[in-house]
């Protein structure tokens, strides 16, 4: 058992995109119950340091597997398909057009203080994202189509960011 072992091995689960989140939660808690610094507050220096490293590692692994986008990126990384998020931003023009329309709609609703419209955009996007994760599950778990999955993940990165912006706009309207 070492830090180089992959996150799925750490939690003792199969490396799949579709996973049982409540099972992951309980495995995470079981591991923290063993390695957390609170378990070693009265131990020697070496054990305390080690416990901090392990607990840090378990937190990072859990955060990566818990969020679907991060989990998908991680699975692609394990399969040798890195996203190259920063160096490779070329996206098909129709997708970019669609993005621009979304953004305009969000900006308009935000500037007009239209809470209702922002909620509507949020829900629409949420549904769109869910459907895309369904597809991603098939590509990764059933078909092993990693190249296509990489493209879908890049799109989802745009959409998640957009969803975040809508949430921020909603939050600033509430304040």
């Amino acid at each position: 058992m070492d830090f180089k072992a992959d996150h799925f091995v750490l939690f003792g689960i199969k490396p799949t995109f579709r996973l049982d989140l409540s099972d992951l939660d309980s495995r995470y808690r079981d591991i923290q119950a063993q390695v957390h610094p609170d378990r070693f507050a009265h131990a020697g220096e070496a054990e305390r340091r080690l416990s901090m490293q392990w607990a840090t590692h378990a937190n990072e692994a859990y955060q990566t597997l818990k969020k679907p986008l991060e989990r998908a990126k991680y699975l692609l990384h394990l399969a040798g398909h890195d996203i190259q998020a920063e160096s490779n931003t070329a996206m098909p023009p129709d997708f970019l057009m669609e993005q621009m329309e979304w953004r305009e709609a969000v900006m308009e609703a935000r500037d007009g203080g239209d809470h209702h419209e922002l909620e509507r955009l949020h829900n629409r996007l949420r549904n769109d994202i869910s459907a895309r994760y369904e597809e991603l599950g098939q590509l990764l778990d059933d078909k092993a189509e990693f190249a296509l999955a990489t493209d879908r993940v890049r799109r989802l990165m745009f959409l998640e960011k957009l969803l975040h912006e809508i949430d921020d706009a909603l939050a600033s309207l509430e304040e």
Binding site: M1, G12, R27, D30, I31, G44, A46, E47, W54
Partner: peptide
């Protein structure tokens, strides 16, 4: 003592994680 027990600490931690799994 800290130095002499380093490897021991590692093995104990591994053991407890394996036990959970």
């Amino acid at each position: 003592l800290g130095y002499e027990t380093q490897a021991f600490a590692h093995r104990r931690m591994d053991q407890s994680i394996k036990k959970v799994l």
